Amino acid sequence: MATEISIFDLILKASFVVQLVMLTLVLMSVFSWAMIMQRRKALTAAKMNAKKFEDKFWSGVDLSKLYAELSARNELDGLDAMFTAGFKEYARLAKNNHASPGSILDGTHRAMRVTLSREIEKLESSLSFLATVGSISPYIGLFGTVWGIMTAFIALGSVKQATLQMVAPGIAEALIATAMGLFAAIPAVIAYNRFSHTVEKVESSYGNFMEEFSNILHRQAVANVDAK
């Protein structure tokens, strides 16, 4: 009666190189899932904070009071940071009697653009790792498969009569590496594509706010010049 061979047994009996490939893929999968959970939490928080800030900003709150409230915080993210950077630069330039509305607008726009780049860089953190896992995991698994099959056929060289029962375990353990490579790659690719799309939407939302806020500050600067 033939002895049933489990996947766990195949992994334990695999060659050292194939086992090393499997261990590498398992670690990559674990780290990618950790990154997926962390990025999901960060992006969800970014969208919620952006909506919360916009609701408060467009509610008619006094911008000076909003700036003072946000400046009192230790850490600022997203639109909070962009608004604070823009309003701070606007206040600094508005004190200069020789500053034109155009120069004030350029200064505030540059300040918010720098902050925007930093915030998007935060949101894109670890996405490159997911892209790397998604792109190279199948090849690492394929390498383990090729190595395992090659080792199995080399071992058959010393056997006078090869049977399917002798070849099957070696090929099966090698194919496990390919399966593990796909198991690591597929979630990473799906998460990368989804998160990249989310970051693009958040960046577009930030950019729209930056333009709208810049227009508000520009109108205020023009009004201040006319009042002098």
Rank of each mutant, 00 (worst) to 15 (best):
T3R: 08
E4N: 13
I7F: 05
I7G: 05
I7S: 08
D9Y: 12
L20S: 15
M22I: 14
L25N: 01
V26C: 10
V30F: 05
M35P: 00
R40K: 11
K41I: 14
A42Y: 01
T44G: 15
T44S: 14
K47D: 11
N49I: 08
K51G: 13
D55K: 08
K56Y: 14
K56V: 13
G60I: 00
K65S: 12
K65A: 12
E69A: 05
L79G: 01
D80W: 00
F83V: 09
T84L: 09
T84S: 06
G86C: 07
F87H: 05
R92V: 10
R92S: 14
A99W: 02
A99F: 03
D106L: 08
R113G: 08
T115N: 02
L116T: 05
E124Y: 02
S125I: 07
F129D: 02
A131H: 01
G141H: 05
V146N: 09
I149P: 02
L156C: 12
Q161E: 09
T163W: 14
L164S: 12
Q165K: 12
Q165E: 15
M166S: 15
G170E: 01
L175K: 03
A177S: 06
F183K: 03
A184Y: 02
A185F: 00
P187V: 06
Y192V: 07
R194A: 11
F195T: 03
S196N: 13
E200K: 13
S204T: 10
S205K: 14
N208I: 07
M210Y: 03
I216H: 11
H218D: 14
R219G: 13
R219V: 13
Q220K: 13
A223D: 15
N224C: 15
D226T: 12
A227I: 12
